[in-house]
């Protein structure tokens, strides 16, 4: 009978299992493309809107303003979708399919990693859209291809560090809707209270203090330094350290929380 197929006992290796979970996460995006609406809409709307509404007033001309704005909207576009992987993970751990995964002899971290790799796919899509749009409306990055690639890589790295953070949150709250609304509530204010859109010099003192310690400002500065080839390295160093620190704290924490589920 063809429903019976006895093979030798085998198991999927770490790579095969992670690949299968990544493919599954990407299929979920394919079946529910509205997951990509935020990824596309936020950077597009903010880039276009701010360039033409405020560009003349803030940067002298839209094209000059883009030099400051575009690396910033790239950061904003990517950070604002960092909670998707976590939300999907929260959904997984509360549905029956998670139990089925747990009865398989595969490395337990593969499911979490699959969601994170799918997140990286989202970030690259968002980055491609922002860059293509920016160049179409007049952004000319002085850093050239290496600068742009470096800037995008740094911002995607920052996004992945935040993905770990949201995955940990997801395993604590175990509710996809809560992860999404928490993500929005936590990420939106610091995106604006940063130096993405304007220089903080006209802001009240307490807000300037916040903008200066806000990691989003630092990562935006770093992306500007790389893409516009300013020669500055402090923000880049700071950002790399922040990415490493967040990943080193929340990576193990997430894996620990995930293993506790069993």
């Amino acid at each position: 009978m063809s429903v019976i197929s006895r093979g030798p006992v085998s198991r999927a290796g770490v790579l095969a299992a992670t690949g299968a979970f990544t493919w599954r996460a990407l299929l979920k995006i394919k079946h529910e493309p509205k997951q990509l609406v935020d990824v596309i809409a936020i950077p597009v709307v903010f880039t276009v809107l701010f360039t033409y509404i405020f560009g003349g007033a803030l940067g002298g001309s839209p094209a000059r303003y883009l030099t400051t704005l575009l690396p910033g909207t790239l950061v904003m576009g990517i950070t604002s979708c960092t909670m998707y992987g976590g939300a999907r993970l929260a959904q997984d751990v509360t549905t029956g399919v998670f139990d089925r995964f747990r009865t398989l002899p595969v490395w337990r971290g593969a499911l979490v990693l699959g969601h994170l790799l799918a997140d990286a796919g989202r970030y690259l899509l968002a980055a491609t859209i922002v860059m293509a749009l920016g160049i179409a409306i007049g952004y000319r990055p002085a850093g050239g291809v290496p600068g742009v690639v470096g800037g995008v890589a740094l911002v995607v790295g920052f996004g992945l560090a935040l993905s770990w953070l949201w995955a940990a949150v997801a395993l604590l709250v175990r509710d996809p809707a809560t992860v999404m609304s928490l993500g929005l509530a936590v990420l939106m204010p610091p995106s604006f209270a940063s130096d993405i859109f304007v220089q903080p010099s006209t802001m009240p003192g307490w807000l300037q203090t916040f903008v200066r310690v806000n990691p989003i400002s630092h990562v935006a500065d770093a992306a500007r330094d790389l893409m516009n080839h300013t020669g500055g390295t402090a923000a880049v160093t700071w950002s790399l350290l922040a990415v490493a620190a967040i990943t080193l704290v929340f990576g193990p924490l997430t894996v620990g929380l995930y293993n506790r589920q069993s």
């Binding site: 198991r11 999927a12 290796g13 690949g19 398989l104």
Partner: peptide, 8 residues
């Protein structure tokens, strides 16, 4: 997905 996770 389950086939891949079973090592096929």
């Amino acid at each position: 997905v389950f086939g891949r996770l079973r090592g096929l």
